[in-house]
């Protein structure tokens, strides 16, 4: 089977600093890849490069479209690319205010992608929004509240609903649980785990939290100073780390 996503040689420099140095990996449908590392390791830059939000200095990102054809994202027109991003891809951001429209109701936030792809039936959009709010455990009576009135955990769940409403096949997540209380984190992680399995989503999740990587991911990519230090099965890398840096990383945290 051809991979869903093929990343090759992604490189990005900021001045003299190498934020990403020749990163490559593939992702299959339904596969969850965790990118772990400390702040400044380049893991968030990698996500921005994959999403095409930051232009790479070198390297390529190829994606297998719904019609089966694999295309280098650089060869897509802006229109094709944006359509892809708001239908077949999702991006859950660490800062919910970057991923949501804070002045728009929860229902409007979930419905935006539907309206973006041309749905013009209010009743249907609202019913779909209600369904998704239920799936992310947001009470139906909150549908008309703006996310400014939501807790941090609810905002992240709303982001997830907003992204998943068009049934994307690939979701990028940038530290989706950081900054949340531990109990709120657990609930969110469990929800993500369930949805990923149920919907067969391919996910790239960037996290500094090895416990998050262990709970959600099949494979892990350890980054440091813009380079991939070690990669492999998540439980193998976390329990039998080979690289000196990975050993340090694993030993530096509470039991994961």
């Amino acid at each position: 089977m051809e991979p869903l996503l093929t990343v090759e040689g992604l490189t990005k420099r900021y001045g003299r600093r190498l934020a990403c140095d020749g990163i490559g990996f593939t992702l299959d449908p339904g596969e969850v890849l965790a990118v772990v590392g400390e702040s400044g390791s380049g893991k968030s830059t990698l996500l921005s490069l994959v999403a095409g939000e930051v232009a790479a200095d070198a390297g390529s990102v190829a994606y297998r479209l719904r019609d089966g054809a694999t295309r280098d994202l650089d060869t897509l027109s802006v229109v094709e690319r944006r359509a892809l991003m708001r239908t077949d891809w999702g991006f859950v951001r660490q800062d919910a205010t970057q991923g949501l429209r804070m002045a728009v109701s929860a229902g409007g936030n979930v419905g935006e992608r539907l309206m973006g792809v041309g749905d013009r039936h209010y009743g249907r959009i609202r019913a779909t929004a209600l369904d998704w709010l239920a799936r992310v455990e947001i009470a139906p009576d909150r549908i008309d509240d703006p996310p400014t009135r939501f807790s941090g955990g609810m905002r992240q769940r709303l982001q997830i609903a907003r992204n998943l409403v068009t049934a994307p096949r690939l979701v990028l997540m940038d530290e989706p649980t950081s900054g949340l209380d531990v109990s709120v984190q657990a609930r969110l992680l469990d929800m993500i785990r369930g949805l990923v399995a149920e919907l067969g989503l391919a996910v790239i999740i960037v996290t500094h939290d090895l416990a998050v990587a262990r709970l959600l991911s099949h494979r892990v990519l350890v980054m440091r100073a813009g380079r991939v230090i070690e990669t492999g099965l998540t439980d193998q890398v976390l329990d039998d780390p080979q690289a000196a840096y990975t050993q340090l990383l694993v030993s530096s945290v509470l039991a994961a």
Partner: peptide, 9 residues
């Protein structure tokens, strides 16, 4: 046992 499960290399 862990090697047999691919858990250890």
């Amino acid at each position: 046992l862990k090697m047999a499960y691919g858990h250890y290399r």
